[in-house]
Amino acid sequence: MSDIAIPVGGQGGEHSAHSHPKFLQHHFHTAQQQFEASKLGMWLFLVTEILLFSGLFLGYFILQSKHPQAFIEAHHHLDRNLGLINTLVLLVSSFTMVMAVQSAALSKTKATLAFLYTTFTLGGVFMVIKYFEYSHKIHDGLLPGSLFSYAGAAVPGEYLFFSMYFMMTGVHGIHIIAGMGVIAYLIYRTHKGDYSSEYYTPVDLTGLYWHLVDLIWIYLFPLLYLVS
């Protein structure tokens, strides 16, 4: 994403200084064109993310349809309240993210920073709660596949649920961490005053990404915590 942010130097691309904003890359005619291209590129990237997760969801659906009883039994080991709190945390973080984008678009740098910090913090809260959930599972031996060592399993095949649980939340968690990394970078650039109503593409694109990660969780929450 930062590819879009910085003009390309070198490569014989000497630009004369006249009326050429520094964020505009040499192969675009207008800022508008560059913005639209970046945005389309981001949506295409989101498509790849959705298809990536679709493999995990399909795996979940198939294993769940084969072993419904095991999945119901196994999901009782998850803490529904923590899942709910995490859902709310992510939803709020999505809200603060979209507010950050809007503030950037309106050149309200202070508000942008405040919202970005909040979003980053909420991402952190999500991961901390996730950490406590994980360590609880690890302690109980509720682990994927061959690592599963929980003695009180009522139905054989519960390890399948935990295979899916750890893979799905794991891949999702990696996306949260990546998103937090990008938001940290945005905070740094906003402090430098790089974003304004003229140019805030990176904030906008990161917002899209962050919402997608939230959107995935919207599906993960009922699948993993609320199976009935």
Binding site: S19, H20, P21, L24, A31
Partner: peptide, 14 residues
């Protein structure tokens, strides 16, 4: 350069 000038006349803003 010459090739830039033609295209840089107007830059719509966000």
């Amino acid at each position: 350069m010459a090739l830039e000038k033609q295209t840089m006349e107007s830059i719509p803003k966000h």
